[in-house]
Design a protein around this nucleic acid. Structure first.
Lengths: 191, 191
DNA sequence: ATATCAAACTAACAATTGTTAGTTTACAAT
DNA sequence: ATTGTAAACTAACAATTGTTAGTTTGATAT
């Protein structure tokens, strides 16, 4: 076992390829070639192509689930909770944008139990964020406009952050966090 | 030629399948089966699988390009232009969400000229929206916060609208338009 | 009745897919 | 020196892929 073991190297390499072309369009030979080995050699480390997908997606999904539960259970004001959700997405995007892209685009290629597990986590995540917003409205912190639109707008942006981050001139995590909070909390117009 | 000809039926059917599983994971036999014919029969109507993808994506992309240019050239206030962009995405989402999903997820499977053409349209679209925001800042209509964050947040939401629209309890195009404008222009917080 | 033609069919192809079996290599520990 | 082991290899497989060639069907117009 090295500092980063071979299996992890394969997972990371695969995630990068999946990000660019999608799970289905990437072959085991593609992954092998990127690592400068033969396709059959991959099977010394992983069980199947499916397993690679599962390992990429589930770990990230569980992290989202875990942190979201922490945020939900805290007794901070709603605005603070929304900020922490934004922070969570930024942090994971910076740490592992390849896996995030894969989670977003290729989750439907999971099968059976793993697929059901993922879908449940995803639904729970959305519902928990919905609860945060709803609670904010009840506490008078947040406008009583269409809550669904708020929920999906914010989550859409956060989920596709990986498409933007690092693309234009570099922006720090702190600045991104600040700008996004400002945008969603106060809007874009003057006055 | 019927009211809706066979080729269009194939395109629409394929778009729906592509939406669910992605271009690469859908086989010609899948498309054929959904139409209750054999795969080889498809080739009486279309030239290749690639052609289906091109026809789905390019038409929509050109529509976005065309309308964006109209909006950009108008002399309406910035806020009005942003609202019209929102309106554009809502309209196309409602009319053809399958094709929109395909454009979003499978554009990278275009090849050669079509790929270059698409990428150029996409870049132009983003740049044009960026110009609208920038102009709004210069006119004093919009806050001088991080403009990039505004651009990508709004476009992210608009581009993934197809994932949400029609999912929860139905909301009219007008109400969606109103809620989204309100959200982005004024934010979610009270006061 | 005959000809036309769109649109389906059957059968097959060459290439590519994920995967398995069995073997070799190179280095570390005994 | 011998053994063990991680990690590569070659060769091949059965299935699936997009696609082509040639044929049949069924309705419409002459």
């Amino acid at each position: 076992m090295r500092i980063i073991d071979r299996k992890t190297e394969i997972i990371n390499c695969a995630a990068q390829l999946f990000k660019n072309k999608g799970y289905s369009a990437v072959t085991m030979r593609d992954i092998a070639q990127a690592l400068d080995i033969k396709a059959a050699s991959l099977y010394n480390h992983i069980k199947s192509k499916q397993e690679i997908l599962v390992l990429i997606i589930i770990e990230i999904a569980e992290e989202f689930t875990r942190v979201m539960n922490e945020i939900l259970e805290s007794d901070a004001p709603t605005i603070n909770k929304v900020e922490r959700v934004i922070q969570l997405h930024i942090a994971i995007t910076i740490r592992n944008s390849d896996a995030l892209a894969c989670l977003n685009n290729d989750w439907m290629h999971l099968t059976d139990d793993q697929l059901a597990y993922f879908i449940r986590m995803r639904e729970d995540y959305e519902n928990n964020f919905r609860k945060i917003i709803k609670n904010g409205v009840e506490q008078g912190e947040i406008k009583a406009n269409n809550q669904e639109v708020m929920v999906f707008s914010i989550l859409s942006t956060l989920r596709t952050l990986y498409l933007w981050y690092g693309k234009t001139k570099k922006i720090s995590a702190e600045e991104l966090q600040k700008s996004m909070s400002e945008l969603y909390l106060k809007g874009i117009t003057n006055k």
